[in-house]
Structures are given as C-alpha cells and as structure tokens.
C-alpha cells in the first residue's frame, strides 16, 4: 500500500532531519519518494539538495499566478522529489491558509504525486490552526507519526498532538524518539508509546554526524552512508514502510504525563 505520512512533533525536535534522512534511505532502497515541507521556514528538503534552497510554492504564487510543476518540484538526492510550501513574512498574512493553497496547487500541477511509494509531509511544530492539518485533511495522509525526545516539553507536545489526532479521528502509526541524551530515554519513550496505545517504531541516538552533515547541506545517507547513524535511518525507513499498525491514540492526562516523566529522571 502507498504510504502518505506526516511527521508531527515539537518545534526543533528534528522533524526535518528525520524526514529528509528517511526519505533518502527509502530512495536508496529503490522507492519513489516525495518530501513536502510545510514549514514556512522552508528548509525540510535543503539537505537533499546539497544545501540549496528551492523556490517555494507560495513564492511562485506570490509573483505569478501560474505555477508549473517545474517551478516548484525539484529532484534531490536519490531522486527524491522535493517541494516546499513556503509562507508569508512573519507577522503578516496567514500561513495556515498558505498550506491549504499550496496543497491544492500541488494536486493541480502534479496529480501523479500520489503515485510515489512514499510521500512525507514535514509539518510545522505547532498545529495552531485549521491550515496545519491540511496535509491530513486535503493531502490524503493515511498515517501520522509523532516525533519526540525523552525531555518533558517535547513529550508534552507529543501528547498534545495526539489529542489533536484524536479530535480529528486520525490514527497514529507510531512514535519516533529522536534522542537528546535524556535519562533512560528509550525506556521512557517506550512506556509513553505504550501508555497511549501505540508503539515506539524508531529510536534515533544522538549523533553529531547528523548536524555536521546538515551544516554541509547533506543527509547522512548521502555524506556518510556507511556510518552507524545512516544504518539507523535505513532501519527506520524499512520499519515505516513495513508498518501496518495504526491505533487511535489515547493521550495521557497532564498529571499522568508529569508522573511518567518524573519516573524516569535519575
């Protein structure tokens, strides 16, 4: 079955790194992959394009009403098709509406995008308004993942995001932990996943190599394909593709979450 996934999580937790490395790993595995960055910062795909920023859908729309596929969809590492939604200047306009318009535009200019084996929407950290669930509502997402670390605030955000999924009736494909070297992080993430009725589908250890590759404008799959961390992303990509388990998440009460976080702090 075709995978159309969206990765949610607290801002700064590593959604773009995870999305681009997973996309690269899948592509190396012979899959047709598309990465759609929905953050107004528009840097989800930058490490698949050798550090190059591509024109965003909203950039092109702003200047000239007719967007063509070639204007906004670019092939990156491993043939991954990359698109960035873009957004208005901070403090003006409506970024949420921007996402809706960009997804409608994508459907118009490149209806075959659904033929890819894997489509990843990299979604902004905070689901602040209706537009931010547009990938799910209008972009045919059939699986969502939540990314967290073992720190309290990212967990808190992840739990809240699950509340949002519950409200819109979206099932959770699993939890991914992007390690920040918190105390007993994997165990905590496992128990959290378990308690909300889901499972931990991936654990990404903290590795400075990810950052250094990013700084140079690459994914680890491209710059350091033989590294241990590249292997982790390859495994995660395989697990995501193979995953068929989706659950209606049962988010924790705030107190319960606090207790859980305390339980694992050393």
């Amino acid at each position: 079955m075709k995978k159309i996934i969206a990765i949610y999580g607290k801002g700064g937790i590593g959604k773009s790194s995870t999305a681009s490395n997973v996309a690269a790993a899948c592509a190396l595995n012979g899959k047709k992959v598309m990465l759609i960055g929905c953050d107004p910062k528009s840097d989800s795909s930058i490490t698949l394009l050798g550090g190059r920023r591509i024109p965003t859908v909203l950039d092109v729309l702003r200047e000239n009403k007719n967007v063509e596929k070639e204007d906004v969809i670019f092939e990156g590492f491993g043939g991954v098709k990359c698109m960035e939604v873009g957004g208005p200047e901070p403090g003006v306009g409506c970024a949420g509406r921007g996402i809706i318009v960009a997804i409608e535009t994508l459907k118009k200019i490149y209806p075959q995008y659904l033929d890819n084996d894997l489509i990843i929407y990299d979604v902004p950290g905070d689901v602040v308004c209706g537009g931010f669930v547009a990938p799910i509502k209008k972009g045919f997402v059939n699986e969502v993942y939540v990314l967290t670390s073992g720190e309290y605030m990212p967990l808190y955000a992840a739990n809240n995001i699950c509340r949002g999924f519950d409200k819109i009736g979206m099932e959770l494909g699993g939890v991914i932990c992007n390690s920040r070297n918190a105390d007993r992080e994997r165990e905590l993430a496992e128990e959290f996943s378990d308690r909300i009725g889901s499972r931990l589908i991936g654990y990404i250890p903290k590795d400075p190599l990810v950052q250094s590759c990013e700084r140079d404008g690459f994914s680890v799959l491209e710059k350091a394909p033989d590294s241990e961390i590249a292997g982790v992303y390859t495994q995660l990509a395989e697990d995501l593709l193979a995953n068929s388990k989706r659950v209606k998440a049962a988010p924790l009460a705030d107190d319960a979450l606090r207790e859980l976080s305390k339980k694992y702090s050393v």
């Binding site: 409506c94 669930v133 509502k137």
Partner: peptide, 10 residues
C-alpha cells in the same frame, strides 16, 4: 470558513 481551513467533507 475557507481561510480557517474548515473541512466541509467532514
């Protein structure tokens, strides 16, 4: 309703 992303199909 369209600006705030209301979903009519729901």
């Amino acid at each position: 309703s369209m600006i705030i992303g209301e979903e009519l199909t729901d």
